[in-house]
Computed example of a mutant assay.
Amino acid sequence: MKATRDWFGESLADLAAEHEDIVVVNCDLASATKTAAFRARFPHRFFEVGIAEANAVGVAAGLAQEGLRPFVASFGHFLTGKYLEIFQSVGLNDAGVVLVGTHAGLAIGKDGPTQMGLRDVALMRTLPNVEILHPVDGVETREMMRHVVGHRRPTYLRLCRQPQREVHDPRHRFVPGAPDVLHAGRDVVVFSMGGPVGVVLDALDTLAARGITPTVVNVSSLPVDAAALGDIVDAHRRVFVIEDHYVRGGLADEIARIVLDRGHRVAFRAWGVPDYGQAGDPRDLYARYRLDRDGVVHHLTSFADADLATAPR
């Protein structure tokens, strides 16, 4: 098991050997963001700007406009905190920058909410030309990296700190925007991205013992294919979204909009982080916010037990 930030670092260095236009703009976090391997192999293509994310975004936008494919790496909380610079320099200019935000969600633990990437998806969703990618494992990370170096659109790559097990077969191929069905079930469909996906899969045996067999869908890229996602929703009576992010503005909002636009008559619930977050051991935090396996079992059991007799049809 590895964190997706580790898979990113390895993939970046390997792909840079094939793509001479790849450069890195770093914010004094090469070890944490796993860009150190790139620096060791390609020091002349590694630009250190220090603890200055706003400057890094501007430098990267300029490099992109000169035909390079720059990766700006920092904690997701810090990087998207420079939203104005991203909006002005990357978004408006349609600059081909890959914004790499690591340490997504609660897993940074004791460093607390001043460093937790909990509102980054909400911010990046507001930019109409920015692709958001959040891989669930090593296979998908490598596939996404190959995808990213193959185009020049602005991209936000969201990465986790915690180790995550492989959920894909090595032959899996990433398709941008396609909802990725990892487990077929009935009645309730669970949509998630990144770290919580594996947690939901780990809860399946316990849920099955209670007579609950959810469909599990990995939504690893936004914007998602609305038609494909709508077809999945059509086959279920209940939709549940769980994300390691603020409950407002993230994946749940994206899916709710699709459900409403299509006129689906389903019961809909979402769960995420309802406050600013806390500092503590990551395991304690995930338990506190009911984003661990026991929390998933609790949410889906209560949802399955809910009376839908009065729900609109």
Rank of each mutant, 00 (worst) to 15 (best):
W7Q: 03
E20Q: 12
E243M: 05
E243T: 12
A304P: 07
D169P: 09
I86Q: 09
E85I: 00
A52G: 11
G198P: 11
K110P: 13
G272V: 02
E254T: 14
Y156K: 08
P282L: 04
L207V: 06
R283P: 03
F87T: 09
A52M: 01
S221A: 08
V57I: 15
V121P: 05
P176L: 01
G62P: 09
D169L: 00
D234A: 15
D187C: 00
L15I: 04
F8V: 07
L127T: 07
D307V: 01
A122L: 05
L308D: 12
E18T: 12
G195L: 13
E85D: 15
L207G: 12
D231T: 13
E140R: 10
R146L: 03
N129M: 04
V181F: 01
H236F: 09
P176S: 02
E143W: 01
A13I: 01
I232N: 11
D284C: 00
A304C: 02
H298A: 11
L222P: 07
R125N: 09
G194Y: 03
D284E: 14
G150W: 07
R158K: 12
G76W: 03
S74Y: 02
A95T: 08
A16V: 00
A184R: 15
A64R: 00
F87Y: 14
D21H: 13
W271P: 02
D111A: 10
P170N: 01
L260D: 11
D281V: 08
A256I: 07
V72N: 06
T126V: 13
A178K: 11
F174Y: 13
A287T: 06
C27K: 03
G76R: 00
Y276T: 14
D137N: 04
G280I: 07
D169G: 01
R125W: 10
F268H: 07
G109Y: 10
P70G: 08
G195S: 12
G277S: 01
F240G: 06
A122R: 04
V97C: 11
F42W: 13
Y286H: 12
N129W: 07
M145Y: 02
R69L: 15
V25D: 06
L123R: 02
V148M: 13
Q115F: 09
R119D: 15
S220T: 04
V23E: 02
L12S: 02
F303S: 00
M145V: 05
D111W: 12
L201T: 11
S11K: 04
V139I: 15
L222M: 04
L251D: 04
T80K: 07
G280C: 05
S11V: 04
H298G: 03
G67E: 04
A95Y: 10
F78C: 06
V98G: 10
S221H: 12
A208Q: 03
A17D: 14
A267R: 09
V98N: 14
P154F: 05
R238A: 06
V181N: 08
V239G: 08
D284T: 05
V297A: 13
V188P: 05
G67F: 03
H298M: 10
R41T: 05
Q65M: 14
E85C: 02
A228Y: 03
R293H: 04
F8Q: 08
A235V: 10
M145T: 01
D284Q: 10
P179I: 01
F42E: 13
L29N: 04
S192G: 15
P128A: 09
H264V: 02
A17T: 08
N129P: 05
I212L: 05
L229Y: 07
V197F: 02
D21N: 14
F87V: 03
P214S: 00
Y276D: 15
